[in-house]
Nucleic acid binder design. Structure first.
Lengths: 173, 173
DNA sequence: CTAATTATCTTAGTGGCTAAGATATATACT
DNA sequence: AGTATATATCTTAGCCACTAAGATAATTAG
């Protein structure tokens, strides 16, 4: 206990640092969307499509939290700009798969280069063993955020008077 | 080289894992805004105010990338809902400081509880030494994202034909 | 003390979003 | 098979937050 920071204090700092970098990450995404001349939602969908490859319109609505009507608009704009194509599912002709057009989508990729370079630079300061720890944490963290998103839905169903009333994570200054 | 993952492969995995969790984090924020009944931008500003405490309208415009006109709207809505107050700077009466009303803002805090709990759970799986490494990384990462945001502005000023044309970070499947 | 600058607000117009319902296809029931 | 119900996407009307441009008010520079 005498040497090293007390664990509780460490966690507070960790939380604040992660909130700050995540907020800044959001801003980076907004800047990319602005520069690329597409809306935030459009870019969010395009990013997801790049991770998943081939996704139905309905799935896009699920993961973004937008209505299916809004997704129709998103896909219309992305398709018009050439980033994606619609592909009817031959097995179930109600479904529409959205697939990226990699040659065109690559134009967006350049706006992520500064972020990738900055991250490479950060990572260069860590040993392979440390990077493995970071990977473990990133994977754990992803699961955690998914869980939290689920749990948040439970909060909605809890009547307000039964909820805890915690302080907003507050500033220190 | 024979044991442990090759560093390059590790970095690719790390990047994907971090992109996924960051995307999911964005969704969590959107869900909070929906439940709280305020817009994404309003919540983003409120979060920033909670970190910084007391901030001018103009600074809010800077950090969010919104126009000052849009910020007027944000602050109007937040003020009407009781989350913040406007405070004229007595030294320079053009400026308006926006200050949070903690008692009211606490109502939003509850929606972050699931996230905090999930993160506590994740962090419980790490030793104090490991947490210190994570903190170092979170701080480095924040600096990195800030740098990247700056560097992105440089990309805008580079004529398109002089830019590299990298592939979009692509899926593996 | 006039001009230029800075900080916020106002206004008009636009675009993406939701809610509700239409359309088309698939599945379940009798 | 044939009818009802469910599912997936699209369409439409209306709303709200955003931008761009300019107005207002206060400060700083010459």
């Amino acid at each position: 206990m005498s040497r090293g920071k007390a664990r509780a204090a460490l966690l507070v700092e960790l939380e604040e640092a992660m909130r700050r970098s995540s907020a800044q990450g959001v801003l980076y995404g907004q800047a990319v969307a602005n520069i690329a001349g597409i809306s935030n939602s459009d870019l969010e969908c395009l990013d997801f499509l790049n991770l998943e490859g081939r996704v139905t319109a309905g799935r896009l609505a699920e993961v973004t939290g937008l209505t299916t009507g809004a997704i129709t608009g998103v896909v219309d704009r992305l398709e018009k700009a050439g980033y994606v194509r619609r592909e009817r599912d031959e097995a179930d002709r109600r479904k529409v798969f959205i697939v990226v057009v990699p040659e065109v989508t690559a134009k967006i990729g350049q706006f992520y280069v500064p972020m990738q370079q900055a991250m490479q630079k950060v990572w260069s300061g860590y040993s392979e063993e440390e990077l493995r720890l970071l990977l473990r944490f990133a994977l754990d963290g992803y699961k955690g955020v998914l869980e939290a998103t689920e749990a948040l839905k439970a909060v909605i169903d809890t009547p307000p008077e039964k909820r805890a009333n915690p302080k907003m994570p507050k500033a220190r200054r």
